[in-house]
C-alpha cells in the first residue's frame, strides 16, 4: 500500500521525469526543424540522427512519467495535450535555432550536461530511470563528441564563424545556469536516491565546457546571471509557438487516432 511518503515521491518524480522528457522533446523538435535546410547534406543527415535520438528519449521518459502519474496519460497525451505552463523543459532547449552555429552551441551546452546527468543516473535507485539513462547515455556521448568537435571547428574556423560562435555563446550562456539550480523536486528525488542534485554536476560541466571553448578560441561571457523558470513551467514566448505548431493536429481533431 502506498504511504504518504511514497505519494510525495511519486508526485515529485512525475515532475522530474517531465523535466527530462520535455527537454528531450523540445530540443528534438527544434533540431528536427533543420531537416532539409542544413548547410550541407552530411550535416542534414547527422542532425536528423540527433533529433531522432532525442525524440526517442522523450518517448521513454514521458511514457514512464505517465505510468508514475497513474492517470492513464501516455507519451502522446503528455506531449500534445499539455499547455506551455505544464511543460517542464529547460529554457535553453526552447531557444530558437538561429543560425547553424547557435544550434550547435545550444546542443553542445546541453550535451555536456546531459552526458554527466545520464552517467550519474545509471546508478539510480529507480531501475527504470537507470535503464533509460543507460540507453540515452550512449546517444548523448556521441552527441557531445559531435557537437564539441563542431563548436571547436567553427570557433576556430574563419573570422566570420568565430564571430558567430561567440555571439551564439553569449546569447545562450544566460540559460545554462538553470541546468544546475535544484529545487524541491530535485531534493525529494535526490533524497530517494533516484538522481543527483543538479548543483553537483556543475563543476564537471564547467570543466568540459571550458576545455572545449578554449580550443574553440571562444570566451566564456563574464556573467553569473541566469534566466530560470522553465523547469517549473514559466517559459519564454518561444515555447507557445512551438507547441501551437507541434500540437496542431491533436488539438484541432480531438480524439482522432493517427
Amino acid at each position: 500500500m502506498a504511504t504518504a511518503v511514497d505519494n510525495i515521491v511519486s508526485d515529485k518524480l512525475f515532475e522530474w521525469l517531465l523535466r527530462r522528457g520535455d527537454s528531450a522533446l523540445i530540443l528534438g523538435h527544434r533540431v528536427s526543424e533543420w531537416c532539409g535546410h542544413s548547410p550541407v547534406l552530411e550535416e542534414d543527415i547527422a542532425l536528423a540522427n540527433v533529433a531522432l535520438d532525442l525524440i526517442g528519449q522523450a518517448r521513454l521518459w514521458l511514457t514512464y512519467a505517465g505510468e508514475i502519474e497513474g492517470k492513464g496519460r501516455g507519451e502522446n497525451e503528455l506531449a500534445f495535450l499539455r499547455d506551455a505552463w505544464d511543460f517542464h523543459n529547460f529554457l535553453l532547449v526552447e531557444q530558437p535555432n538561429g543560425d547553424f552555429g547557435k544550434t550547435l552551441m545550444r546542443q553542445f551546452l546541453y550535451d555536456a550536461y546531459q552526458v554527466l546527468l545520464l552517467e550519474a543516473l545509471e546508478n539510480s535507485s529507480d531501475q527504470r530511470v537507470a535503464e533509460i539513462a543507460a540507453k540515452a547515455g550512449k546517444e548523448a556521448a556521441y552527441h557531445l563528441d559531435r557537437s564539441a568537435d563542431l563548436v571547436i571547428r567553427l570557433g576556430d574556423g574563419t573570422s566570420e564563424s568565430h564571430r558567430r560562435m561567440q555571439t551564439a555563446l553569449e546569447t545562450l550562456w544566460i540559460y545554462t545556469g538553470e541546468l544546475f539550480s535544484g529545487d524541491e523536486v530535485d531534493e525529494v528525488v535526490s533524497d530517494a536516491g533516484i538522481a543527483p542534485m543538479p548543483e553537483t554536476l556543475q563543476s564537471s560541466w564547467r570543466q568540459i565546457v571550458d576545455e572545449v571553448l578554449t580550443r574553440a578560441t571562444l570566451e566564456v561571457p563574464d556573467t553569473t546571471f541566469s534566466h530560470t523558470g522553465g523547469v517549473t513551467g514559466r517559459h519564454s514566448e518561444h515555447l507557445g509557438h512551438l507547441l501551437a505548431e507541434m500540437q496542431f493536429l491533436q488539438r484541432a481533431y480531438p480524439g482522432a487516432t493517427w
Partner: peptide, 9 residues
C-alpha cells in the same frame, strides 16, 4: 569528420 559523417550517413 569523414569518420563521423560516415557513421551518420
Amino acid at each position: 569528420m569523414a569518420i563521423k559523417n560516415a557513421r551518420d550517413v
